[in-house]
Write a protein that binds this DNA or RNA. Structure first.
Lengths: 206, 206
DNA sequence: TATTATCAATTACATTTGTCATGGTAAGTC
DNA sequence: GACTTACCATGACAAATGTAATTGATAATA
């Protein structure tokens, strides 16, 4: 498989290259030193996998990755990082990268590349351990079971935005009284007590 | 590396075994057909990696994994699944498994095992793509900027649980009046209007 | 046509909520 | 002591909220 390496630290680049060259199934197709070069080289070389530092001077790896993925939805991008960077994990996942590994672990990079090549995503252990705490409660209720009307849904979302009855009435061209009645029936249907519980319900289940 | 295979479908087990045997760096140390066997065999064989079906008849793979991990925190457990099972992803991550891959992809299992062996976690692509939607908004406001007191924080969380003033008072051994006053100062500090907006604020920033 | 059903609006009422001024108490500081 | 300061409580009040019964309008149905 053909790999494109991008890191603003040249030493890292050459180290990676020599390490990867030892694997006969891996070819280093090119090396870049910035986000811009990553985009440029990726388009020209079309490597199987782009191995890129997530944090670089001008353009971050994330930004470059986002641009590349916007053009080639199937691009396989594997991020390198010097430490487990809590902040970037979510974004890296969101834009659709293939993983996120610590570059110190030299000997684990080749296996990771092969797993990515086979269509998997790879994450360093210390990174995965952080994901659960980032995850929402997902004990969602089956909302369709409550058969709420269109209008009732609109009211719920506005309540969940923190609007009061008068504001909701203005927004939906209803009288304030109607909004109040609507909320009463919503509370009835959902077995809740007041609008605050309704907002809580909204955020816990949506 | 030595692998323990556990799946309640014997056909899957033998298929996996023949596939893995083709890799000279991989040895199938044992095969089990239930969660109970998984625990038993794991303790006896101490394999490098336990490759286990997540869904089995009596005891689920998750339950077995939890027990194994409670005794051996460093156990490397890789789950197999027939389809990308939304429900189990989070739990699998939480208990500390090393990944979650689709068993249909025969040829990707060996690379995945090697990556796990090197200390990484591996996830099938369709699984990873689901994680971002499970993740909380984390565009957090710098809450320390508002210097809220300990008591105010407690009140906020209870408001965000949907309790009314009387209930909060009971919970914190305060009078209802004090709770009302406290909320007033919270709203002042956070520049909000009412308890519903406070709950909304809580869920949007926490 | 008559009958239902649905929806918005209105009214009235009880309760909850948010605000403000005030008072008491305990723990420090001068 | 006298003086803050912080914290909790109280009472009073206006406003917002939730509930219920009722009405008018409209459309749909038999």
């Amino acid at each position: 498989m053909r790999i494109l390496i991008v890191d603003d630290d040249k030493l890292v680049c050459t180290s990676l290259k020599t390490i990867l060259k030892q694997n006969e199934d891996i070819t280093v197709a090119g090396i870049g030193y910035s986000g811009k070069e990553a985009i440029d080289l990726y388009n020209r070389l079309k490597p199987d996998i782009l191995l890129m530092d997530i944090r670089m001077d001008n353009m971050t790896g994330l930004e470059a990755a986002e641009i590349i993925l916007s053009k080639d939805k199937n691009a396989k991008i594997l991020f390198l990082t010097t430490f487990s960077d809590y902040e970037y994990i979510i974004t890296a996942l969101k834009i659709g990268s293939k993983g996120y590994i610590i570059k110190q672990n030299f000997e684990s990079i080749a296996p990771a590349l092969r797993a990515v090549y086979m269509g998997q995503s790879v994450f360093g252990d210390d990174i995965v351990s952080k994901i659960p705490s980032l995850i929402k409660n997902h004990n969602k209720v089956d909302l369709s079971a409550y058969d709420l009307t269109e209008k009732e849904w609109k009211v719920i979302t506005l309540v969940a935005e923190g609007l009061n009855n008068k504001e909701i009435a203005g927004r939906l061209y209803l009288s304030e009284g109607t909004v109040r009645n609507t909320i009463t029936t919503i509370l009835e249907k959902l077995d809740l007590r007041d609008r605050t519980q309704l907002a809580v319900f909204y955020y816990k289940n949506k």
